[in-house]
Every structure is written in C-alpha cells, then in structure tokens.
C-alpha cells in the first residue's frame, strides 16, 4: 500500500520543489476579505472537478470497469441547470434536477454493464458520444449564460476557501467514510479482484456495479455544476471536454490498476493533484501553457512504467506473469 503511493508522492514533491525554485513565493498564502488566495489554493480549486470525477472513476475502475461518459454527463448537468435557471427557475431546484437526471444516466450505464454484460468501455462510449448531443439538445446549441448568485457560489464562491475545494474534499471524505464504514469498499474490491469467487460467496455483484456507475455519474454531475457555475454559463460542447481522460489518469497515477481490485482514494487525490500541479508548473516556469500536454504525456508514461506489471530488471530482462499459459 505505502509502496504503491511512493512514486506519485515523489512526483508531486518534485513538482512542488520545482515550483518553489522557480517561484519562491509559491507556498505563500494570503487572506484577503476573508478569502484565502495563493498558488496552492489555485491548484486545488482548478483541480476540484477532476478530483471529483476521479473519485467516482476510482470505484468504477476498482470493479474492473471504466466510465468514458463522465465528461458528457458533466456537460449535461451544467446544461440542465443553466437552462432551468435561465428560464426563471430556482437554482436549487435546477441543481436538483441536474443531479437527478445524471443519476438516471448512471443507472443507464450500470444497466448496460451489469445487466446486459456489455464491456464497460463500449457501454459508456455510447453515452460519451450521445451525451454531448443531449447536452446541446438541452441548450439548443447555445451557450446559456445565467446570472444567479446562488449558483455562482458552487464554482466561484468562497467560504474562506473556495467552495469548489470544500465540496471536493467533502465528497472525498464522504466516499472514504462510506466505503470504509459500510461494507461497500470490501465488496467493490472483492468483485474487482475475483468476480467468480465473489459470486460463489454470495456477493450481489450486479448491485455493486450499478451503485458505482450511479455514483460516478453523480460525481460527474457535481463537477459539471462547478465547471458551469465558475463561468456562469453552460457550454455543451466544451464543458468537461477530456475530463474523463484526466480522471482516468489521476486514478492510474494514484496506483489503482485498470485491471480492477484494490483501489486507493489517497492515490487518486495525489493523482489529481499531480495533474493539476503539472499544469500550473508548466505555466509558472514560463513554458507556453499549450505545451502542458507534452509534459502530461511524459509524466503519465513515467509513472505508469514505474508501476507497470512487467518490470525491467538490471540487464534488461523482462519479468512478469505473462506468457505462461494455464
């Protein structure tokens, strides 16, 4: 467990050190009008939606699944809320509607995976493709802007710390609490590690899988609210674009294997922070921000190779459990 988090921690520390070297004031925080500001706060705030989605993704991946549709779901959540508010609706009702609709979308994904037995990657590809269309259908292809102080709080508000950070951390705490205090974590891991043994032990795999997809969709919905609230607008095309990829990366960098089984929420937190810090770092050390992607690729490959199932030993011999047919 500790071992698994070693590389992500080192990567994050290295990034932070690099930042301090370049910008000595990197760690400084200041309080202004009761709001906390600073580079670290920025990282946390910008990384909040990714972290949220990655939390849902962690549980999905732990059951040997994957959810590609979270970006589209996030866009739908923003679209529903903004359209409803723009039509004169109550922002709370609007957000409630969005969460409810996204829960239904999660049920849909869970249905395809657990009942119909479709591979998760294709099952969620359907909604990934159609979801943006649905979001645009809701906004009728427009960027819907709203002016709702209540709604604005979700993504841009402050309660000493930005509310987005508080929400993400609250969800992190909640997931940690729920998975450890109930038996959900145990059953998720057991289904992910050994589905047939779990079945023979009487585990309701179907319910478990269904639960994680609904949860992932809800996380995506909240993240979608944050993204859209931050700009007070719903952009069906670009809201949450590629965020599923960032989320999957965060999970994988955090040491949870795409093959399912043991997962680490702390790892996912680290993964999300690494991705966001990387983006910030590239910016602070004066490289064109567009090139972030190159660094992201390099970090992904490096961290993945460190954790690769097949290690390269000195002398270049490859070891692993591949190759021996049963």
């Amino acid at each position: 467990m500790k071992n698994r988090l070693l590389w992500p921690v080192l990567a994050l520390v290295a990034l932070l050190i690099l930042n301090v070297v370049v910008t000595p004031t990197f760690f400084s925080l200041r309080l202004q009008d009761g709001h906390l500001y600073g580079s670290l706060i920025d990282i946390l705030r910008n990384g909040a939606p990714t972290l949220l989605i990655a939390l849902g993704m962690t549980l999905v991946i732990a059951t040997r699944g994957i959810d590609l549709s979270v970006g589209a779901v996030a866009a739908i959540a923003g679209a529903v809320t903004c359209t409803h508010i723009a039509a004169g609706g109550n922002p709370w009702v609007a957000m409630g509607l969005a969460l409810a609709l996204c829960a239904v979308l999660g049920l849909w994904n869970g249905f395809l995976v657990s009942v119909l037995g479709i591979q998760p990657i294709i099952a969620t590809l359907v909604l990934m493709t159609a979801g943006r269309g649905i979001a645009m259908l809701i906004t009728e292809g427009q960027i819907v802007t709203v002016d709702s102080p209540v709604y604005r709080q979700v993504g841009a508000g402050f309660l000493v710390l930005p509310i987005a950070i508080l929400i993400s951390l609250a969800v992190l705490g909640l997931v940690a609490l729920v998975t450890r205090r109930t038996a959900l974590g145990l059953l998720i891991e057991s289904v992910g590690v050994n589905p047939s043994a779990s079945r023979l032990a009487g585990v309701r795999a179907r319910t478990i899988i269904w639960t994680v997809y609904v949860f992932a969709a809800l996380c995506a919905a909240v993240a979608g609210l944050m993204i859209s609230s931050n700009v007070s607008a719903a952009d069906a095309n670009n809201a949450g674009l590629w965020i599923e990829m960032d989320a999957i990366l965060a999970v994988v960098i955090g040491g949870t294997s795409l093959a399912g089984g043991r997962y680490s929420l702390t790892g996912t937190l680290l993964g999300a922070l690494i991705i966001q810090t990387l983006t910030t770092t590239v910016y602070t050390i004066g490289i064109k921000p567009e090139i972030t992607l190159v660094f992201k690729a390099v970090v992904v490959i490096a961290v993945c190779l460190m954790q690769a199932p097949v290690r390269v030993r000195v002398g270049g011999r490859v070891r692993g459990k591949q190759g021996v047919p049963a």
Binding site: I66, I121, M245, I248, L249, V252, L258, A259, E290, I291, T292, L293, V294, F295, K296, A297, V298, V300, I301, C304, L305, A308, P309, V310, V312, G320, Q322
Partner: peptide, 18 residues
C-alpha cells in the same frame, strides 16, 4: 511493459497534441 493500450495511447494522444 504490459501497460494497457488505453493508457499508452492516451498518453500518445496528449503527446501528439502537445
């Protein structure tokens, strides 16, 4: 290295775009 194609080509996607 036995890393899943999904992750490797995702990294490739970032790299090429970058």
């Amino acid at each position: 290295f036995g890393v899943q194609p999904f992750i490797v080509t995702l990294a490739g996607m970032f790299l090429a775009r970058g």
